[in-house]
């Protein structure tokens, strides 16, 4: 039995209108400035293993119109939490999801199965929200592209190498392709489909 009981539900935003707006602006800044780590000010208190940053993005952006796919570890309590606070339905497959939430970046779903959009509707592509262990400015991945003046370096711990391979393929599909938020603690890193990994140019 998996019934949602109000008493057991972890709280969402304290002030849904204002917190959603602030979280959205942080997400907007993160996507507009790829590689620049942004800090979320307003955090909900989701049930583990869903972290506060991933929950904040989901609460600010998801609703009845956005099917959500969840990695194995996030099914159960996380789905109940998101369903209650956002009304978002569970996607039948990862390919049918508008948002794909991944609890642990070391265990990625099949990134070739998600929706990349199509040539006339590239905006339909999914947004990934992936929890990682650590984000830090500095040597690691070198990024270029729109939103970046020159280049920017960022270190990401706790994400499978397959993610960076998928990101290189993603760039080749442009204007199709997924957009990504990497999150940990209060931090958000935006990686829109325009991001170029510097290694590609070498």
């Amino acid at each position: 039995m998996n019934q949602i009981t109000l008493q057991n539900l972890a709280p969402g935003f304290q002030d849904p209108q204002l917190d959603s707006q602030l979280v959205f602006r942080t997400a907007l800044q993160a996507l507009a400035r790829p590689g620049q780590i942004q800090t979320l000010d307003r955090l909900p208190e989701p049930p583990a293993p869903l972290g506060a940053a991933a929950a904040a993005l989901a609460l600010a952006l998801c609703d009845l119109e956005t099917p959500v796919a969840l990695s194995e570890d996030l099914r159960g309590a996380t789905f109940d939490y998101l369903a209650f606070h956002t009304g978002a339905p569970l996607a039948a497959t990862v390919g049918a999801a508008s948002f794909v939430l991944v609890g642990n970046g070391n265990h990625l779903p099949d990134l070739s199965a998600i929706d990349f959009g199509d040539a006339e509707d590239p905006e339909r592509a999914a947004t990934l929200i992936i929890q990682v262990e650590h984000l830090e400015a500095g040597p690691g991945q070198r990024l270029r592209g729109p939103g970046i003046s020159g280049h920017i370096d960022v270190r990401v711990d706790g994400i499978a190498d397959a993610f960076w391979d998928a990101l290189k393929l993603n760039r080749k599909r442009f204007p199709l392709g997924f957009d990504t938020f990497l999150v940990t603690g209060r931090s958000v890193l935006g990686l829109p489909r325009t991001v170029i990994l510097d290694a590609e140019e070498a």
Binding site: S20, Q21, F24, A27, L28, L31, A32, A60, L61, D63, E65, T66, P122, E123, A125, T127, G147, P175, D179, P192, R193, T194
Partner: peptide
């Protein structure tokens, strides 16, 4: 607003 915000994020990505 949420619908417009999702639209804006996709616009920035493309």
């Amino acid at each position: 607003k949420r619908m417009l915000r999702r639209t804006i994020l996709k616009a920035v990505a493309i």
